[in-house]
Computed example of a mutant assay.
Amino acid sequence: MSFAYWSILIAALLPLAIAAYAKSGSRDNNTPRDSAEKLSGAKRRAYAAHQNAFEAFPFYAVAVLGALTFGASAKTVGVLAAVYLAFRIAHALLYIADKATPRSLAYAGGLLTNIAIFALPMLQINFV
């Protein structure tokens, strides 16, 4: 199985890793969504990054599966998948660090990379 497929699992688990940081130290597991409202500072931003990672995931998963299904090179998709994951990890770290402009640039880089993955079969471009 190619890295591109595995990257979908990594992207799916990324929001959970971010949430683990956001909620570390929280003792309220009875109403975990309510306790998120009480977060502040870096942990509140981590929770927002967690939500953003979930919002970005469906398009990414569809783009990778679509590209591979419709004939894009698995190696090219894999390279772009690694770039996408790097952007998404950077986005989360920059969100937590409260670096708004670099965070927005990381978001845009991830989005553009995702669009590139989605468009690969149509453009018949293989970088690798």
Score class of each variant (00 low, 15 high):
79 V>Q: 10
69 T>W: 08
66 G>Y: 05
92 A>Y: 13
84 Y>G: 07
94 L>T: 10
96 I>Q: 14
91 H>D: 10
63 A>Q: 00
79 V>H: 04
64 V>W: 00
72 A>P: 12
65 L>H: 03
85 L>P: 11
93 L>Q: 09
75 K>E: 06
81 A>R: 00
111 L>M: 15
89 I>S: 11
69 T>I: 03
110 G>C: 08
98 D>E: 12
83 V>Y: 02
117 I>S: 04
96 I>Y: 15
98 D>W: 15
63 A>N: 01
112 L>I: 07
62 V>L: 06
92 A>D: 07
85 L>V: 14
99 K>S: 14
77 V>D: 03
71 G>Q: 03
84 Y>Q: 05
72 A>V: 03
94 L>G: 02
79 V>K: 00
77 V>N: 01
117 I>N: 01
89 I>M: 13
78 G>Q: 02
90 A>P: 12
70 F>D: 08
64 V>Q: 04
115 I>H: 01
76 T>R: 01
102 P>M: 14
90 A>N: 10
105 L>T: 06
75 K>N: 09
107 Y>H: 11
77 V>I: 07
81 A>L: 04
91 H>R: 02
67 A>R: 01
79 V>A: 09
99 K>M: 14
75 K>F: 01
87 F>S: 09
97 A>L: 15
93 L>I: 12
117 I>L: 05
78 G>S: 11
75 K>R: 03
115 I>Y: 03
64 V>N: 02
117 I>K: 00
103 R>F: 12
91 H>S: 06
74 A>D: 12
82 A>C: 07
84 Y>D: 09
89 I>H: 06
106 A>V: 13
101 T>W: 09
91 H>E: 15
68 L>T: 10
102 P>L: 11
110 G>T: 06
64 V>M: 07
78 G>I: 02
78 G>V: 05
104 S>F: 06
98 D>I: 14
92 A>G: 11
70 F>I: 10
108 A>G: 14
98 D>T: 12
104 S>N: 15
91 H>M: 12
105 L>M: 05
64 V>T: 13
75 K>A: 10
92 A>K: 04
87 F>P: 08
88 R>W: 11
102 P>N: 08
88 R>N: 08
69 T>H: 05
96 I>V: 15
62 V>P: 04
63 A>T: 02
65 L>S: 10
98 D>Q: 13
85 L>N: 14
91 H>I: 07
93 L>P: 11
83 V>C: 10
93 L>F: 15
85 L>A: 09
